[in-house]
């Protein structure tokens, strides 16, 4: 991934010199699945995020990793991702407790773009894991259970020498087709996804609202690049 930073920097430079258009308005639909986001919008947000992070690091005499800077540098890690206990936390219905920091250059950038890092964190973590939640719920469906049992039988037949818990990807994929598991999932997922989306409608709305705000911010930031003045850390976006 780090290798991608060089082209990314070039892309930033290109974007910074050109015009950027803001994305569609707050009513951008997100009904059918986990939100399908516009790649151009994603890029605008990521460009703005990279710009803010780079500036924040520069103020501390740091830079994003390059071939000459170790990615293991603990100073860089702390400056980017924060220190102390993580302040943000959300336990998903699937059992995972997702956490993040409110300090560090990444948190600063998110706060600047989205206006409220805490609200954004809750909405983003929820929305980003709707599909995982739907997949988790599907497992209790009788058709899914039956297909899963067939998959397990299928996967038990595999080359000598493989460990009991180690199903090679090719075997897992073949068995997913043969057992009908893939078909069952494809059949169950739309309804399950619609259910979890309906249950989390408030978070989906917040997600869209904050993303729209961030797109406006990003446009202003990138468009007005030379005139932007850096505020002291912690006062941005308030």
């Amino acid at each position: 991934m780090l290798r991608r930073l060089a082209p990314a920097a070039t892309a930033v430079a290109l974007l910074l010199t050109g015009c950027t258009t803001p994305g569609p308005g707050p009513d951008a639909p997100a009904r059918n699945s986990a939100p399908v986001t516009d790649p151009a919008e994603d890029d605008l947000l990521k460009t703005a995020q990279l710009t803010l992070v780079t500036r924040c690091l520069a103020r501390q005499g740091l830079a994003l990793p390059t071939r000459t800077h170790s990615t293991e540098d603990p100073r860089l890690q702390s400056a980017l991702f924060g220190t102390g206990p993580s302040e943000l936390s959300l336990t998903l219905p699937t059992g995972a407790t997702v956490t993040a920091h409110t300090d560090g250059c990444l948190a600063d950038a998110l706060h600047t773009l989205y206006g409220d890092q805490r609200r954004w964190f809750h909405a983003q973590v929820t929305v980003n894991n709707l599909r995982a939640l739907a997949a988790d719920r599907m497992k209790t469906d009788p058709a899914h259970r039956a297909a899963m049992a067939r998959w397990t039988d299928c996967a038990a037949t595999r080359p000598r020498g493989t460990l009991p818990d180690r199903v090679p990807p090719a075997v897992a994929d073949r068995c997913a087709v043969q057992s009908g598991l893939m078909d069952v999932r494809a059949r169950l997922e739309p309804a399950e996804l619609a259910r979890v989306r309906a249950e989390r409608r408030d978070q989906l709305t917040t997600y869209q609202q904050l993303r729209t705000r961030a797109l406006r911010r990003a446009s202003a930031l990138i468009g007005a690049q030379p005139a932007i003045t850096i505020q002291p850390k912690g006062t941005e976006g308030t």
């Binding site: 991702f81 998903l92 699937t94 407790t97 997702v98 993040a100 998959w151």
Partner: peptide, 21 residues
């Protein structure tokens, strides 16, 4: 599970533990 996404994380997001999975 025969392959489904268990979690998706954005940059800076961490999971110290998962009580279920």
């Amino acid at each position: 599970q025969g392959g489904h996404m268990t979690i998706c994380l954005a940059p800076g997001q961490e999971v110290g533990y998962n009580g279920a999975a």
